[in-house]
Design a protein around this nucleic acid. Structure first.
Lengths: 295, 295
DNA sequence: CGATCTTACGGGATTCGTAAACATA
DNA sequence: TATGTTTACGAATCCCGTAAGATCG
């Protein structure tokens, strides 16, 4: 048989104390129980560990050689346990998440900051990537969970809504749209649009909305970054439909924004995670803080 | 509570197999018992380790992070156990012993050689030192045991006789002693003696024997090494009384040896060890082989 | 004789295996 | 429905603490 951790603890305690009685006190154990433990570990290892008579308890040479090895083992063990319990509490660890750039640039920084104020020992690994990549990274376990909209609902993934992100139209200040009180989909279809890359969730939503309404898109150009789109609008190439949470366009002079009230342009943004997958405690805590903060 | 080794084994097995059923088979355990073990270690660590449904068992992120650490711990543990059992068998390890030079140069080499043929993985740390040092090294645990004579019996040390070493007188070939059939103590007291250092056991015995017989020693000189003594005898400074087991004098031309039959010059040589001290298995085995070889 | 380890034994907790219930693809 | 996990429960085992015994200084 192989020795147990309890027996190893007993061995180390007796070796350090040089006495069964004192070691038993230290271990909160009766002394006969200790005798049994030592006998068991000696028989398990096949080695006499102590030379003991009624007056003195001394390590044998093999016991002396074994002691530091087992002490090291015990320290390693306790370090692992302590580490694991620290992670379990949710006060420490790493939150890995993937997030749409629009969210990463708008609501997320404040959320991370306030969470980090409560739990300073939590690190964030944040991937701000396109919607396709968010879903892919959740599926491949590269991240604990993702933040984004999920249209249509993907099989095997859970979606928990955090807030609704509306779309807005970005246009040059002197554009005709500026005079309208209400921007309809049909209105938008009359002007050239600066489109985002087809992998973005905004683009998916726009394509779907126009298709559902039977409208054609007049495509001005197609870009990868929101900033580029804003620059294109500023240059007069067209107007852009962007998430209301995206703040980048404000950096460009002479642009204005107007919300779009069409229901097709309201997207629920939320947590995307594999169904039936447990989040690490820190990640679960952060996800929870997002949900409560939004409401 | 802290997890047990059994629970750690269970965790590793399930993680590797990806299935409770297969892991249970591998562990020779019923599957419900495994379920309990996993539940216990999860509660002990405060961490969910597996996401499990009836179809699949998958590690949590924390479980994935914990697995290599615990695997490493288990390997370390098993290495220690295996090492310890190897040492317990007596087939492997180190024999540390201190030994009188006369014994180290005569009977010991053959004993070590034959023991090493039986157990090739045993190493010897052999200290060939004077009698005082032999006893001191045994007392201070620098060696597992010593080999020498023990006169008078030292308190706290055990002595187990291996063989009797007789003394012999070394003299130049043309010395008057050569014509005697029996060399008595009284005869020896008539000639100058080349003495060994007072720390040697041979010297102690000679001093004691002469004192007991009320004879005076005619001291020619006092040297540290047997070889030196032989050289002195060859040079005609005197005769020497040396252990019959010391072979060095044969290297010097023109010397002869004759046994001394006086009982005071017969010394029991044996194993010297601390009483109540357990020898490492290899050392015990070697000591045993010495005892049986001598008889 | 006193301090300390060992042995003996009864009670309580832990752990196992069998059988039945439960859940998901 | 079939496969695989969980729950329930009785039985065996392990472990502890008390009390008595043994041993060495």
């Amino acid at each position: 048989m192989s020795p147990s951790l309890r027996q190893i603890r007993a061995f180390i305690a007796v070796a350090r104390c040089g006495s069964f009685t004192r070691a038993a006190l230290q271990l909160h154990l009766s002394q006969p129980a200790l005798t049994v433990q030592i006998r068991q570990i000696e028989s398990a290892l096949g080695v006499k560990l102590f030379d003991r008579n009624t007056r003195a308890v001394r390590l044998t040479r093999l016991g002396r050689e074994l002691l530091p090895k087992l002490e090291r083992l015990q320290l390693d063990f306790e370090a692992i346990i302590a580490d694991s319990k620290g992670l379990a509490g949710g006060h420490r660890g790493v939150v890995r998440l993937a997030c749409l750039p629009s969210v990463a640039a708008s609501v997320l920084p404040a959320a991370v900051k306030s969470f980090n104020k409560m739990f300073p020992h939590v690190n964030f690994h944040l991937k701000d990537v396109s919607w396709h990549r968010v879903v892919a990274m959740v599926r491949s376990d590269e991240v604990d969970f993702g933040i984004g909209d999920i249209i249509p609902t993907e099989p095997g993934l859970d979606f928990i809504e955090i807030f609704e992100d509306k779309m807005q139209v970005i246009y040059p200040a002197r554009h005709p749209i500026d005079r309208l009180s209400n921007v309809s989909l049909r209105t938008l279809s009359q002007y050239p649009l600066v489109m985002m890359d087809s992998e973005t969730s905004a683009r998916s939503m726009i394509d779907a909305a126009f298709a559902a309404a039977g409208c054609q898109i007049i495509r001005a150009c197609e870009v990868m970054y929101v900033s580029t789109a804003a620059a294109m609008v500023q240059a007069g190439l067209g107007i852009a439909i962007l998430p209301a949470s995206s703040p980048e366009w404000r950096a460009y002079q002479g642009l204005k924004a107007k919300p779009i009230r069409e229901s097709a342009f309201i997207r629920p943004v939320g947590i995307i995670k594999k169904s039936g997958q447990t989040l690490p405690p820190v990640s679960a805590a952060f996800a929870e803080s997002l949900k409560t903060k939004a409401s």
